[in-house]
């Protein structure tokens, strides 16, 4: 029983690359709409949907991007009205809207992604490209809380040594610089101990292997195959037809291929949501038996 959340991080990352890649790569308002809905639903399901600030920000961004295009670009044949003798056209307004959908859905997908990926998972994905960068990443994450703690101690000590005067901003900044300087010396000097501890445990002796807590299970492979097959369907069907905005909107005719494309994308964006729901239902069912 594994939810999308617990799937192998590499499978999850590739899934997100497929979904956002298609949104960015294929400029089709219907696909963008599907992508947006999928992202919105999943962001509500996976828990970070309660963040009203985020929704508001996305809304503002949506309106801004949707409006800026017709103000700048005056292509298109259907003139709606004039502002300062510049025509505002329906086509460029719709173009802007479509674009705004694209932008906002990518943002939603990314926020879902960072909600699912903690530093351990990111480390795992990262480490496949470069174990060294992954190690530096992990060490830096170790240092951040340590340094935060220390800077509190330094501030306390320096305060009792008369570093700060009451309510003087310049003095505060000077003090902060001093604190930062102490912390750097401390960090660098003590860092040598870390380096020794690494060498003492055989770092640099030979080729490193990489231990992770993640594995590829059958369902990860299924997720990977399913999402790549669906992505290929979407791309193949979308390349066949073009959504033209200028000079006049020409929507491609609905054909079997394009319907397959849209449906495939719909399934693709809903995979995580369906997965979460499925697990939820299964768990309830199981619980009723226990």
């Amino acid at each position: 029983m594994r939810t999308f959340k617990d799937s192998n991080p590499i499978a999850v990352t590739l899934y997100f690359l497929f979904v956002t890649g298609i949104t960015m790569f294929l400029f089709d308002p219907i696909l963008n709409g599907i992508s947006f809905l999928g992202a919105l639903i999943f962001s509500l399901v996976c828990g970070d949907g309660r963040d009203n600030k985020k929704h508001l920000l996305c809304l503002v961004l949506f309106v801004a991007t949707a409006l800026i295009n017709p103000l700048v670009s005056h292509n298109g044949v259907t003139v709606l009205f004039f502002i300062n003798d510049n025509p505002i056209t329906l086509e460029s307004l719709l173009y802007g809207c479509s674009n705004a959908f694209m932008l906002v859905s990518v943002l939603y997908w990314f926020s879902c992604f960072s909600c699912l990926m903690d530093s351990d998972k990111l480390l795992y994905v990262f480490g496949s490209f470069s174990p060294k960068a992954a190690l530096v990443f992990s060490m830096a994450l170790r240092y951040i809380p340590l340094f935060g703690d220390r800077s509190k101690k330094i501030r306390a000590t320096q305060k009792t040594m008369g570093l700060y005067k009451d309510g003087n901003i310049l003095d505060m900044i000077r003090g902060r610089v001093r604190e930062f300087s102490i912390m750097t010396t401390w960090a660098l000097e003590k860092g040598i101990i870390t380096a020794d501890s690494m060498s003492a445990r055989g770092y640099g002796q030979g080729r490193r292997t990489r231990f992770t807590n993640f594995r590829f299970y059958l369902c990860d492979v299924i997720l990977l195959i399913l999402s790549s097959v669906l992505a290929v369907f979407v791309i193949m069907s979308a390349v066949k037809h073009d959504f033209v905005f200028y000079p006049a909107i020409v929507a491609p005719k609905m054909s079997l291929i394009s319907v397959i494309g849209y449906v495939s994308y719909g399934v693709l964006v809903l995979i995580p949501t369906i997965n979460e729901w499925k697990e939820e239902i299964r768990w309830r069912y199981l619980r009723s038996k226990i």
Binding site: K132, L135, V136, F137, M139, A140, R142, Y143, I144, L146, F147, G148, S151, R176, V177, E179, F180, M183, T184, A187, L188, G191, I192, T194, A195, D196, M198, S199, Y203, G204
Partner: peptide, 19 residues
């Protein structure tokens, strides 16, 4: 290992240093 440690220290300082 020492160079690696310095890199990680500097990375962490970048984040902590928003004083």
């Amino acid at each position: 290992s020492r160079r690696l440690v310095i890199s990680s220290v500097m990375t962490a300082l970048c984040i902590i240093g928003r004083f």
